[in-house]
């Protein structure tokens, strides 16, 4: 698996023969280990450290049909300074929006260090012709997106047309230019952990900067075992090629406690090198509020209420 393997374009072979070590995932063991790591108790200073890290790694996301420039502007203010009453709470890593809202986000975030990520490639289904997807990416980059979150064509993947999926990622990566590319696998649609691992390796082989669990548009999005499978794929690629690929978990991570469980797993699987916004992200919207409530609880000693934190 050194570098991106030379894959026969448009040539439908079983993936096994082109990507070594896809192997099979032991479902019971993965779920057991994920559950085991989730039990770890993180308290006091370590908890505060982990919560602040989770905020720094957060892609504050709004992907709704009802998004307006006004809502995005409000979200950007929150991204820069999550807690208006406490300047010590760090900024999030990025804002994640639909392409049309990139200019609004760009304007508000100028000079803040918070990046603008945009979904593209016919998000969330990815069921559109390649030309449309590439144009989507080019437009998003032209409007100033620093990061592109693309979706793979699950229909192609599940019907065994891996080369199509691979080629699309390669072309999207080219269209991205300097923008970072995150490849969304949508694990809940892939069906098996074997497929999750296969798709992870495929995306990394196609030069993805990040691999990402989910669009957040489906129920049962990110799960701890799915992240573990993906992290182990990242680790295998790193051990073989020395290349560090990032991980983004998104969808359904709403409680500070869950975020810490995801971070623990990253630390245990990939080590402290990955505990940075450059290599790990959590895509979330309501998570930030829960973290802010926990941080203020650690500071004041009193349990907090949603009533005193902004909705978006």
């Amino acid at each position: 698996m050194a570098q991106a393997p030379v894959l026969p374009r448009g040539f439908e072979l079983p993936l096994k023969q082109r990507l070594p070590r896809v192997g099979a995932i032991d479902q019971v063991a993965v779920e057991e280990r994920a559950a085991d790591l989730a039990k770890r108790s993180i308290k006091k200073e370590a908890k505060v450290w982990a919560l602040e890290l989770a905020i720094r790694c957060c892609d504050l996301t709004t992907l709704e049909g009802q998004d307006t420039p006004g809502k995005v502007a409000a979200l950007c203010s929150k991204a820069i300074r999550p807690d208006p009453l406490d300047a010590n709470v760090p900024s999030v890593a990025a804002i994640c929006v639909y392409p049309n809202l990139i200019p609004a986000a760009k304007e508000r975030l100028a000079g803040s260090g918070v990046k603008v990520a945009s979904v593209a490639t016919a998000f969330p289904s990815g069921q559109s012709p390649l030309g449309v997807k590439l144009r989507d990416v080019e437009d998003a980059v032209a409007m100033g997106a620093d990061e592109i979150d693309m979706v793979i064509d699950r229909g192609a993947f599940l019907s065994g047309r891996y080369a199509k999926v691979f080629d699309e990622i390669v072309k999207v990566k080219e269209a991205c230019g300097d923008a970072h590319l995150k490849v969304i696998l949508e694990v809940s649609e892939l069906g098996t952990y074997d497929n999750v691992r296969r798709a992870s390796l495929l995306a990394m082989a196609a030069d993805a900067d990040f691999i990402k669990t989910s669009t957040g548009k489906l129920p049962g999005a990110a799960t701890l075992p799915a992240q573990l499978v993906m992290l182990e794929a990242i680790r295998d690629v790193y051990e073989e090629t020395g290349r560090k690929v990032g991980m983004k978990s998104a969808g359904g991570i709403r409680a500070a406690k869950n975020a810490i469980q995801y971070l623990v797993q990253v630390h245990e699987t990939l080590g402290p090198d990955w505990l940075t916004p450059d290599l790990y992200r959590i895509g979330a919207s309501s998570l930030v509020n829960d973290i802010l409530m926990q941080l203020r609880k650690e500071k004041t000693g009193a349990y907090q209420s949603k009533d005193y934190f902004t909705n978006d």
Binding site: G301, Y303, S305, K306, D307
Partner: peptide
């Protein structure tokens, strides 16, 4: 005291 201080 925990309940008295609880913001919710």
């Amino acid at each position: 005291p925990v309940l008295a201080a609880h913001m919710d």
